[in-house]
Design a protein around this nucleic acid. Structure first.
Lengths: 184, 184
DNA sequence: TAGATGTTTCAGAAAAAGCTGTAATGACAG
DNA sequence: CTGTCATTACAGCTTTTTCTGAAACATCTA
C-alpha cells in the first residue's frame, strides 16, 4: 500500500517531529498527507500507518488546531478528507506563525513581566540578562513580521540575494548601541 | 537561594525547552546558568534546582555536547564551573548551528537520497513533493549560511532594516522559475 | 599508596507521553 | 423516529523518556 520511498520519508519525518516536540504519529500523518496527491481520510491513514483509528482521529484534530491540514469533502461522501497545502511556503509560514503564537509570544509576555518587577539588588544581573533576551527575540520576530508581509516571490528573490545583502550590511551605518554597557 | 524572579524564569524556560524537544532539566540548568553572573558548579545546580547530582552531571554533559555552556576553572579549586556565553547572539548562532548539524543536514541527505531513487510511476508525485521540500530547505539554509558570515553588528543593522529590505524586495527582478511547472 | 574530593556511569524506579478499544455522540437518509 | 455510518472522548494499558542512588572511576595531595 505504501511504497518504500514513501515509507522511508514518513518514518524520517516522524522521527524528526519528535526531536522538535511534535508527536511522532502526528508527524507521520502529516508526512503521509504531504506526499499524497489525493486527499486522504482517517481510515486511509489507519491502513497506511497501522495505528489505531482513535489515534488518527486525535492526531488529525491536533493538526487542524495547528492549521496544518485542510479539510476536503467529496460529493456524496460524508467522510472528512484531508490535505496539506500545495504551497510549501504556505506550510512554512503557518508553522512559524503557530509556534510564534504558542511559544514565542507567551515567552515575551513572561519576560516583560519579569523585567518590570521591582528588582531587588540580587536580581539586577538576572533582569539585565532577561532584557537582553527579550530585545533579541523582539528584533528577530519584528524582522520576521516584516518578511512575512512580502509575497512569496519577492521573499524568494530576497533570500536568493544573500551576497547582495551582505554587501548592503557591510556598508550599513551601524547605529550606536543603546544601553549595552556590557564589559567583554 | 533562588529569588522568585529567577525561579519563574527557570521554570518557564524548562517548560519551553520541553516543547522544543529539549529535556526539561537541561533547559532549567541552562536557564540557571544564563541568569547567573558567577559561574556555577554541579553542586550549586543541585542546590538551586533540587534535582539529583547525577541528573545535573548528565545534563551538563548534554549541554557541553551542544557547545552551549563553557567550562571555567578557579585557581586552587578542582571543581568544574560552568557559564553560558555573555553574548546572546553567540548563543543563537550556536543553537542554530547545532540543530542544523543534527537535524537539518541529515534530513537533506535523506531527501536527496530519496529523490535519486529510480522512481516507479506511483512515486512520481511524492518525489516531486520531496524535491520541493529539499529546494526550500536548501534556500533557507543557504541564506542562513550567508547571514551567519556577517559580524553581529552588521547582522543587527541588517535586521533593523526590515523596511528597507522590503523595498529592495519589491523592486527586485523576479527570476523566471526554474523547473516548477506545477499546475495550481 | 592511602585518603580526600569530585565526576561519571548505569540499572532500575518513577513519571510522562502516547496509544488503544470501547462506548458515547453526532449527522444524516429514509 | 430509527438505523447506519462516521467522529470523538476517555479510562486504562504500553512505551518512552527522564531521574535517581549507589557504585565505579578519576585526580590530586601528602
Amino acid at each position: 500500500m505504501l511504497s518504500d520511498l514513501r515509507q522511508e520519508f514518513i518514518l524520517h519525518f516522524g522521527e524528526m517531529g519528535s526531536r522538535w516536540g511534535i508527536n511522532r504519529t502526528v508527524g507521520q500523518i502529516y508526512a503521509a498527507l504531504f506526499l499524497s496527491e489525493e486527499p486522504l481520510c482517517a481510515d486511509d491513514l489507519v491502513g497506511l500507518l497501522g495505528v489505531s483509528r482513535s489515534n488518527v482521529s486525535m492526531s488529525l484534530k491536533e493538526l487542524q488546531s495547528w492549521s496544518l491540514v485542510h479539510l476536503k469533502h467529496r460529493p456524496g461522501d460524508r467522510r472528512d478528507f484531508f490535505t496539506t497545502p500545495d504551497d510549501m511556503w504556505q506550510i512554512v509560514r503557518t508553522l512559524v506563525e503557530e509556534r510564534k503564537k504558542r511559544e514565542i509570544d507567551p515567552t515575551l509576555t513572561k519576560l516583560r513581566q519579569l523585567e518590570m518587577r521591582p528588582g531587588s539588588a540580587e536580581d539586577a544581573y538576572a533582569q539585565a540578562r532577561i532584557t537582553e533576551m527579550r530585545e533579541l527575540i523582539e528584533l528577530l520576530t519584528g524582522w520576521y513580521d516584516q518578511m512575512n508581509k512580502l509575497e512569496t516571490e519577492r521573499l524568494v528573490a530576497l533570500l536568493n540575494m544573500g551576497a547582495k545583502l551582505q554587501k548592503l550590511a557591510r556598508s550599513a551605518r551601524i547605529l550606536p548601541k543603546r544601553t549595552n554597557k556590557t564589559e567583554s
